[in-house]
């Protein structure tokens, strides 16, 4: 197995597991949003790796050759890169909205703990005020 493969496979597995675990077991809104962005990173990495082809260069041409002088046609799949660009922007928008909602939740309830979240899988003791 190549190093690239190992790194990509390992990162996807690790990031997805950490993100999902965080979402399942935390009820603090900020930690939930952090877990979300970790999961998002895992999914974006998955999406962009679907289009990777071993040994090929970036999908840009410079005149008659690729950026590194390789012949045209020897490039990776540009479509997933375009998709991931969209997905990143969308992820940013949802994170921004989630954060401002967290601010409102904190100001109206005085806590960041989202009650009744996490279906009893949490290991955080409920904090009573």
């Amino acid at each position: 197995m190549e190093v690239t493969e190992l790194v990509v496979y390992g990162s996807i597995l690790l990031l997805a597991a950490v993100g999902i675990w965080g979402i399942l077991s935390r009820r603090n809104l900020i930690k939930l949003i952090l877990s979300l962005t970790i999961l998002e990173t895992a999914v974006n990495l998955l999406l962009v790796s679907v289009g990777y082809i071993s040994g090929r260069s970036a999908p840009i041409v410079n005149g008659d050759t690729g950026l590194d002088g390789s012949p045209i046609g020897e490039i990776v799949d540009p479509l997933p890169q375009a998709l991931v660009l969209t997905a990143i922007v969308i992820g940013l928008a949802t994170t921004a909205i989630a954060l401002i909602v967290a601010v409102g939740y904190y100001r109206s309830t005085g806590t960041l703990e989202l009650k009744s979240w996490s279906y009893g899988l949490t290991n955080e003791k409920e904090v009573r005020k």
Binding site: I23, L36, L39, T94, T95, I97, A98, L114
Partner: peptide, 19 residues
């Protein structure tokens, strides 16, 4: 403050759904 609670739950869970 129930609106904030509902919105916070929905914001998180719908993001999970979309990912």
């Amino acid at each position: 403050g129930l609106n904030w609670r509902g919105a916070a739950s929905y914001a998180i869970i719908s993001s999970v759904a979309s990912f």
